[in-house]
Nucleic acid binder design. Structure first.
Length: 484
RNA sequence: CGGGGUGUGGCGCAGUUGGUAGCGCGCGGCGUUUGGGACGCUGAGGUCGGAGGUUCGAGUCCUCUCACCCCGACCA
């Protein structure tokens, strides 16, 4: 352990202080940096590249369901955002306002969007006349602003990047299907691409989106303290917004009806989730499928003669891999190989190929996996492309499997309230328990333990026992946990 | 908004009873190095968060102020 520590002396160990480890790894791996503005972060090229790869994959999946991208204004007039009472009540504490333009006071303040229902729905009202205009399926990639009190890089910043989808439908059933469909898109994306196992389910009344009929969520478990992180949400808004924004249409029978909406979003907090779930004392471990660099080549030489041969081999190997994976050759001359190894470990590159005189002589490269450090394997150049492809795939699965193991290990069925308190107090993870459905029991647990119901999982047991808190008949099995 | 803390080269820090700012890392140059964070020589870089005050003299003392961080309440 002493030697281990030496390699990463600049990074605090997870066990010592997980939250500080997170702050440090985000900064040192060059994902993000502090900005001069409180509560905001600068996303650096490496972090942004990661987000771009995530965007590309999620965007593709969203479009496959028939959704089109569009863009709506950043500002929302006060009167507009205040139309849906529950909606504004929920967001009011965290809305930023524009009250001046140049040197003129605005007649009516503008909200900087905390989410865009209030500016998109009025447009839907203009576009929808007939049932033939429905459904409308729209998504936008943008940033929104929520005036949070305690920011944390990626997880909670005043301004954050996300996509928000907004749809209009003729029937409640169709809206419900869409809300569930998009949650499934998120689940598949997060599990397949980010290697983060999640628990899909429904939010309780008190935890649902402001103005929604129902909110669905996927909840992931972070490393370290095993707290929950809401990784994406999808809302069936019912006809609440249709009514207040007057989205009406004539149905096939010529009857005037209010339309039904959904909205759903996934933000760059999932970047933080990947950091916290997969990372270790050496830094990030990025899932190959969205890693900006999947394979890094580190050349090693002593003499000028060796250097020529090694560089030739590096070129050849890079040429072989270039069309297959995202490969980068680290040709920096002012850094030693050892320094580079640590640097790329910190940045979480899934595979490293070392090419030195010994490798050149034997027509091979030395391969090291980020997820199983310390094990070097020689790969003949002739079989390199296939080997790299297969191993990347294996790394992706291994990351998911390890994360799933953590989730399962730190989830326990609890039937005794004292046991729940104990588990929350020691950061033991998720607790599965029966709940009667009353807000009183929910509030009480939150007040006494700080844990909240993360979701009512879709997967329910045949029989639900008595409520963990009040002992009355249980209606659902729910997941209790502390959350970021 | 409550509680705690910190502001000194890019980063991390030191700076005794007030005496005119120092260390490590990093950075530039040269040379030797390179299979898990190399080394030598050399060089550049700060007026101590801001304002006011006390004093012959303030990074050190006093007053005010600003910013940031951490812990709570809140949160995609």
């Amino acid at each position: 352990m002493t030697t281990e520590r030496k390699f990463v002396e600049e990074l605090i160990e997870q066990e010592d202080d997980f939250d500080r480890w997170y702050v440090e790894v985000v900064r040192k791996a060059e994902l993000a940096d502090d900005s001069p503005v409180r509560g905001t972060k600068v996303i650096r090229p490496y972090g942004f590249a990661l987000w771009e790869h995530m965007q590309a994959e999620l965007d593709r999946r969203i479009k496959e369901t028939g959704v089109q991208n569009a863009y709506f204004p950043l500002f929302i007039p006060k009167s507009m955002i205040e139309r849906e009472a529950a909606h504004i009540a929920g967001f009011a504490p965290e809305v930023a306002w524009v009250t001046r333009g140049g040197d003129k006071e605005l007649e009516e303040p503008w909200a900087v969007r905390p989410t865009s229902e209030a500016i998109i729905c009025p447009m839907f009202a203009r576009w929808v006349q007939s049932y033939r205009d429905l459904p409308i399926l729209i998504n936008q990639w943008c940033s929104v602003v929520r005036w949070e009190e305690r920011p944390r890089a990626f997880l909670r910043t005043l301004e954050f990047l996300w996509q928000e989808g907004h749809t209009v439908h003729a029937t409640l059933e169709e809206a419900e299907q869409r809300a569930r469909l998009m949650l499934e898109v998120y689940r598949d994306f997060v599990e397949t691409e980010l290697a983060l196992p999640v628990i899909p389910g429904q939010k309780t009344e008190s935890e649902k989106f402001a103005g929604a009929l129902r909110t669905y969520t996927i909840e992931a478990m972070m490393g370290g303290k095993h707290w929950a992180l809401q990784s994406a949400t999808s809302h069936n808004l019912g006809d609440h917004f249709g009514r207040v924004f007057d989205i009406q249409f004539l149905d096939a029978e010529g009857k005037r009806r209010y339309a039904f909406n959904t909205s759903w979003g996934l933000s760059h907090r999932t970047v933080g989730a990947m950091v916290m779930v997969h990372g270790d004392d050496r830094g990030l471990k990025l899932p190959p499928r969205i890693a900006p660099i999947q394979v890094v080549i580190v050349p090693i030489w002593r003499s000028d003669d060796e250097r020529v041969k090694v560089e030739e081999a590096v070129d050849r190997v890079r040429g072989l891999l270039r069309d297959v994976v995202r490969v980068h050759a680290d040709l920096r001359e002012d850094k030693t190989p050892g320094w580079k190894f640590n640097d790329w470990d910190l940045k979480g590159v899934p595979l490293r190929l070392e090419i030195g005189p010994r490798d050149v002589a034997q027509e091979q490269v030395t391969l090291v996996r980020r997820d199983v450090l310390g094990k070097r394997q020689a790969i003949p150049i002739s079989g390199l492309v296939q080997a790299v492809t297969e191993i990347l795939d294996d790394v992706q699965h291994s990351l998911f499997t390890a994360a799933k193991r953590m989730l399962d290990t730190h989830t326990e069925d609890v039937s005794d309230y004292e046991r729940l308190k104990e588990r929350v107090a020691i950061n033991a993870g998720f607790s599965r328990a029966s709940w009667c459905g009353s807000a009183e029991c929910e509030t009480r647990v939150k007040a006494e333990t700080r844990a909240t119901i993360r979701c009512i999982p879709f997967e329910q047991p045949e029989q639900v026992g008595p409520c963990l808190v009040c002992g009355e008949a249980g209606r659902f099995q729910v997941i209790w946990a502390r959350a970021y």
